[in-house]
């Protein structure tokens, strides 16, 4: 009986100690990990779509509450004005979620660039959404007031041949971001003022 109690006590104390230690370390590294992920996973896409910005869009970011979800917005400063924001959303692709970063110009309500961040599509087929620059270029200049669709759905984006599902996923993600933008525009403008120099 005594041995039984000892076993339980030792394991409990050990586990509790481990849990505490891990929670402490997690709390202390959380922010740094987020920064690293931004820089190495989403960073290249953000820098690409906000090309020419005078600031560092990864450092200049703010968060907004959208219903239950908290979204990160990245700010692009052009000609001295913080006039563009980029944010990320997901669409259902062929092999899983396709992450898309979309930059929108506040002044013109237009999409100024898109970039696929994460995906698990087939290499050579759906993966061209990320690798083929021509596909992303087609999104430039689209109005941020209406839904983004592929041509076969009555939209303006020519789907990648052999990768209709991926193309639709990218469009769905873009549409989602356009919706978010419309919904949150007043708050976005409010937040952007802080980045004016």
């Amino acid at each position: 009986m005594r041995e039984m109690i000892k076993m339980v006590v030792v394991l409990t104390v050990l586990s509790a100690f481990s849990g505490g230690l891990l929670a402490y370390i997690r709390d202390n590294t959380k922010e740094q990990i987020e920064n690293q992920q931004l820089e190495f996973v989403k960073g290249p896409a953000i820098k690409e779509i906000l090309k020419g910005a005078a600031n560092n869009p990864i450092a200049d970011r703010f968060k907004l509450k959208d219903g239950e979800i908290e979204r990160s917005f990245f700010v692009g400063v052009f000609e001295g004005e913080p006039s563009a924001v980029a944010t990320e959303s997901y669409g259902k692709g062929y092999g899983g979620d396709v992450g898309l970063m979309v930059a929108i110009s506040i002044k013109e309500d237009k999409i100024i660039g898109v970039g696929v961040t994460t995906h698990s599509e087939t290499p050579g087929m759906g993966a061209r959404a990320k690798d083929d620059p021509a596909f992303a270029t087609a999104f430039k200049g689209l109005s941020a007031a209406e839904a983004v669709k592929v041509t076969s759905d009555g939209g303006k984006i020519a789907a990648l041949s052999g990768a209709t599902i991926t193309s639709r996923a990218v469009c769905a993600a873009a549409t989602d971001i356009v919706e978010i933008y419309k919904r949150l525009k007043p708050q976005i403008e409010e937040n952007l003022k802080a980045f004016k120099k």
């Binding site: 394991l11 586990s15 481990s18 891990l22 370390i25 990990i33 690293q36 820089e39």
Partner: peptide
């Protein structure tokens, strides 16, 4: 338990500093 704890520590630290 002991080994797993330290492995998690390494994982978090690596993620934070040598991504």
């Amino acid at each position: 338990v002991v080994i797993a704890t330290f492995v998690c520590v390494v994982e978090l630290v690596m993620q934070a500093y040598t991504y």
